[in-house]
Design a protein around this nucleic acid. Sequence first.
DNA 1: ACCTGAACACCGTTCAAGT
DNA 2: ACCTGAACACCGTTCAAGT
Lengths: 242, 242
Amino acid sequence: MTAHPAPRPSRRERPAKPALTREGIIETAVALMRSEGLSRVTMRRLAQELDTGPASLYVYVRSTAELHAAVLDELLGAVDLGPARADGDWRDRLVEVLTSYTAVLFEHPGLARSALVSRPFGDRYLDLLDALLALMSEGGIPRARAAWAVDLLLQFATATAAEHAPGEKDPADAEGEWAALAAALHGASGERHPHVTAAGAELLSGPGEARMDWGFQVLISGILHTPRHGTSDTSRPSLPKE
Amino acid sequence: MTAHPAPRPSRRERPAKPALTREGIIETAVALMRSEGLSRVTMRRLAQELDTGPASLYVYVRSTAELHAAVLDELLGAVDLGPARADGDWRDRLVEVLTSYTAVLFEHPGLARSALVSRPFGDRYLDLLDALLALMSEGGIPRARAAWAVDLLLQFATATAAEHAPGEKDPADAEGEWAALAAALHGASGERHPHVTAAGAELLSGPGEARMDWGFQVLISGILHTPRHGTSDTSRPSLPKE
DNA sequence: ACCTGAACACCGTTCAAGT
DNA sequence: ACCTGAACACCGTTCAAGT
């Protein structure tokens, strides 16, 4: 790519093969995910896309997990952090940012799954963290508490996206699963599971959006009311040091 | 295996090969997970353990995901639901049950991961749901709200276990990852990420246990303070119907 | 009717050997 | 010194063919 004059791209087809650098690899991985889905973003498939063997990628990328984390961080560039710098109720703006984050992940539940296991911690992720911390600081949440709270909020958003996962490729068996689940619930005997039976369809009810929004409200309200012990978290009158 | 008198187990070694039934397969899968870890619980490895070909398993199990869900439901038998029927503060007992659930999952983070994607919904899982719903009912939480709340609580517990995952088998690179993460945080420039920089080590701080406990408190408090709209959830004086 | 051998289409990762 | 062909050790799932 940056090879001096470079008379022409060496092979015939394919649109602008990126150089074999970390950036080129990740860029190609993102394109591959967009066109074929995350399940095709494998070391071997990616190497093929770059006209090399899989071993070559290990010079730039430690593992498949690390590759996926890098791809996610790239996608996180699409999260709208604007609300963090806007006016209005900080709670509402917090939810807006989180909703934008979730929307990005909903498109790629597989990445959400991988984010649950190994946090990305790239630049874009740090941008997001910073925005959320800024909003909570505005809301007067003590720093130590906010540091834990940000984790809770992102974990909820990420897990929701991960589990939403409409099969990633097979929307038919998502329905099947849902039906099986509804059947299991319905089949729950009133003897053994009286409360489940009583709750019934309520357990599965509601548009995902409303549930998620309610979840955010629960979390924010809980965060506001729950100090951390053993820190300078001063939001309750505080028990005397002993 | 169930061939009439059966003079002796056909092959020499191995301890009591279970019959090729759904129960036998799942039992073997649990044993295999205990001895070799979840990553070895594959269709092929399991078939080998049962002296057959992988294709045979598909008569009893729909897919690897379904197999893992069945294994998890089996493990859920170890969750202590006693507190649900004991005396004392319902909040404390709720946390006790959830902590027991989390402890079970901590032993097998891979299963926690799979539970995030496809809820198990076996009998043991329904037992757990029922216990949690019973406790919230005791706490006076309206049914519709409790139905959503139980999801939130279990999602948090499950995600925490899933992400705790100390490599599942390679505890060394868990440390490495943690170090990389700490480095990323430390390297966060005060220019671009002032709040992250200010929060610093706080973001990674604390024993997992304290964080989890704080998380449960946040959730319970939030649940108590956040009604669901559009249901008979009556916990706030209620805006007039319009 | 029930079960399964064998095949199809893949994986991640390593390392000895080449340039 | 840098890169990689080829191999090692696996995967899930299907289906035609056997008993």
